[in-house]
């Protein structure tokens, strides 16, 4: 059998992933749309995979600099995105009625 071009197999993956994303995201409750956005920020930081390859495997100054900067930028999102999402979702935790804990700030 003839080998499939990587472009075509990438396209297949792309279309299926968009399809899955479309259906999963419509099920997200509107109350959690802000956490959805911050967690997708963290997920799009998956670009760190490409950044790590650039930082580790390049040899020239330009390639290395771009790679390290890209790792740093993506890492901001990996940590910032997941942690701020967790912070927000903690607020949506059902609270036991306790007294005197309402005052913060």
């Amino acid at each position: 059998m003839e080998a499939i071009s990587p472009i075509v197999s990438n396209l297949i993956i792309f279309v299926l992933a968009v399809y899955v994303g479309y259906h999963v995201v419509w099920n997200v409750t509107p109350a959690l749309h802000t956490p959805l956005m911050s967690v997708t920020n963290a997920i799009s930081a998956i670009i760190i995979v490409g950044a790590m390859l650039a930082a580790a495997l390049t040899a020239t100054g330009l390639g290395k600099a771009m790679g390290v900067l890209a790792v740093a930028l993506a890492a901001v999102n990996v940590f910032g995105g997941f942690l701020v999402t967790r912070r927000m979702l903690e607020m949506f935790r059902k609270k036991e009625p306790k007294t005197g804990s309402a005052e913060k700030k």
Binding site: S38, I47, G63
Partner: peptide, 27 residues
């Protein structure tokens, strides 16, 4: 904060693309 994080991803994508054009063999 969310707008800030979007800009991080955008710039990281640009940097990776530059690195890839500079040294395609590394990828």
């Amino acid at each position: 904060m969310v707008a800030f994080m979007h800009s991080m991803i955008g710039l990281a994508a640009v940097f990776i693309a530059i690195a890839a054009v500079a040294e395609p063999a590394a990828f």
